[in-house]
Design a protein around this nucleic acid. Structure first.
Length: 481
DNA sequence: TGGGGTTAT
DNA sequence: ATAACCC
């Protein structure tokens, strides 16, 4: 228990305070007095020490671009800037700018409903993600210049671990500058800052870095967004959305219970998805406090120990998951939802998807060693009913990947059609609503040989690749042939 | 509901 | 290969 050193004392006392607050916050403490044999049902995890060697107080920023696709479209065509704008995929308005939101348009609204609410709505097609994807990676790369530990979440969100950067800045600061330190942006709950609290000070320094990041995004890329600064990813993400467009908020530890309890339903906790929320509701759990106070043992039996422990910690605002550098993508895929009831239609679409994918793979430089075909069958019921078949890409085709795309087109289509016929009995009538082609198992095209430095620095070859950890970026590897 | 992504089992 | 999660 001594392993942590000085920093852990502070963090532990913080956690103890949070727990005291949580218990005090519940009217009359834990609902229903616990029987003696239920005492070990009390959450145990608040007092857990974090791994030795890691500083127990992290500073994490969550950066969330404002209506990202709409912003990219407004940059492409500035005439759209002062108009209500929606980005359309099929018959959905997947996102829209704030002009449109003022007039009642919501994300994922049908085009019909949106036009009804807002007849002046301008729509642009956003089914081709190329420009969004490119801009998305520019944002991630910009953030990586501040600190290399950047985790992407979708195209428009990033987490950055600022702990080290904050430490360095604190070392540089003089004591008079330190006492005059102010916050950049909002403080959640308007909580007063205690200038003698080192946790407060670190988070304030984090808020300045967040402001610099947002300023750089605007100056260099023309993009606006929100940021949240807190001691873990969950809280950073929740707090980033408190003041909405183009603002930032820092969460001080004493307000973490207020933030988590500001959620009206457990489904709003990132990490608790549709399925888990339904299962929890079946157990009578709907509020954050319901989940906090529910029997850990019963929860573990219902959901499995892994999910149960993770989500119950989340309900207290606790999240020890690291910011994992995303690096280059693990997979490339292109999909299209459309009706398809013949093999010829399928083949035509597969050729189309494949052609785009080959261009992307060519740009990336790495080579995929696996290809996957995904379908969705028409069946009115069952959301998310997708089936897939995958197979290795023959090595003689892998080698040709990169420049001579036409040589690989035909054999790849052949492979994909075999996968197709493996899933779909083409002698029987069928009705599909989606086709998707995915390239994965990407390996660097370099000549690293066993025993060389390159071999051990190549994630696809060295042992680190199958531990699931990638702790450095491909672009840092400089692997020329 | 779109057109993407990730990790765990 | 699927199922869950995220946007």
């Amino acid at each position: 228990q001594e392993a942590g050193g000085g920093d852990d004392e502070e963090a532990d006392s913080t956690r103890a305070m949070e727990r005291a607050e949580a218990e005090a916050g519940a009217p009359g403490g834990w609902p229903g007095a616990l029987e003696p044999d239920e005492l070990d049902d009390l959450p145990w995890f608040h007092d857990e020490l974090e791994p030795a060697g890691s500083s127990s107080c992290r500073v994490i920023v969550h950066v969330d671009l404002d209506c990202f696709y709409a912003q990219v479209e407004m940059i492409s065509n500035p005439e759209l800037k002062d108009k209500p704008l929606g980005v359309q995929q099929k018959y959905l308005v997947v996102t829209c700018n704030y002009e449109a939101r003022k007039l009642g348009v919501k994300k994922l609204m049908s085009v019909r409903d949106a036009k009804e609410k807002c007849p002046q709505l301008v729509l642009v097609n956003g089914e081709d993600l190329t420009r969004y994807r490119e801009m998305s990676y520019k944002v991630t790369e910009l953030l990586e210049e501040f600190s290399p530990v950047v985790e992407r979440l979708g195209f428009d969100e990033n987490f950055v671990d600022l702990t080290e950067m904050v430490e360095k800045r604190l070392e540089q600061l003089q004591s008079d500058e330190l006492s005059a330190l102010t916050v950049s942006g909002h403080v959640y709950n308007n909580q007063p800052v205690n200038p003698r609290d080192t946790l407060h000070i670190r988070l304030l320094v984090g808020s300045h870095i967040a402001a610099e990041m947002r300023e750089a995004m605007y100056q260099q890329l023309g993009l606006t967004g929100c940021a949240g600064v807190a001691s873990n990813k969950l809280l950073a993400k929740l707090v980033s959305g408190v003041f909405k467009p183009n603002q930032q908020t820092v969460l001080l530890p004493e307000s973490s219970q207020d933030l988590i309890h500001s959620l009206n339903h457990i489904k709003e906790i990132p990490g608790i998805g549709y399925k888990t929320a339904k299962r929890l509701e079946a157990l009578g759990i709907s509020s954050v406090r319901d989940l906090q106070t529910f029997s850990s043992k019963i929860l573990e039996k219902e959901l499995g120990i892994s999910v149960a422990q993770r989500i119950q910690k989340l309900s207290f605002g606790e999240d020890d998951s690291p910011v994992t550098p995303s690096g280059p993508p693990q997979s490339f895929s292109e999909e299209d939802s459309f009706r398809c009831s013949s093999e010829v239609e399928a083949k035509t679409k597969i050729e189309e998807l494949l052609a785009s994918l080959l261009n992307r793979v060519c740009q990336d430089g790495r080579k995929p060693h696996t290809v996957r075909l995904v379908i969705r069958r028409y069946s009115s019921e069952k959301l998310c009913n997708r089936e897939s078949r995958q197979c290795p890409i023959p090595s003689h085709i892998v080698q040709k990947l990169g420049a001579g795309n036409y040589d690989v087109m035909a054999p790849m289509v052949d492979i994909l059609m075999k996968l197709f016929r493996n899933m779909v009995n083409v002698k029987m009538p069928f009705h599909l609503t989606l086709l998707s082609v995915c390239f994965c198992n990407l390996k660097s095209r370099n000549t690293a040989k066993k025993g060389t430095i390159d071999y051990y620095l190549t994630p696809s070859l060295s042992t680190t690749s199958h531990t699931g950890k990638r702790s450095f970026k491909m672009k840092d590897c400089h692997m020329e042939d």
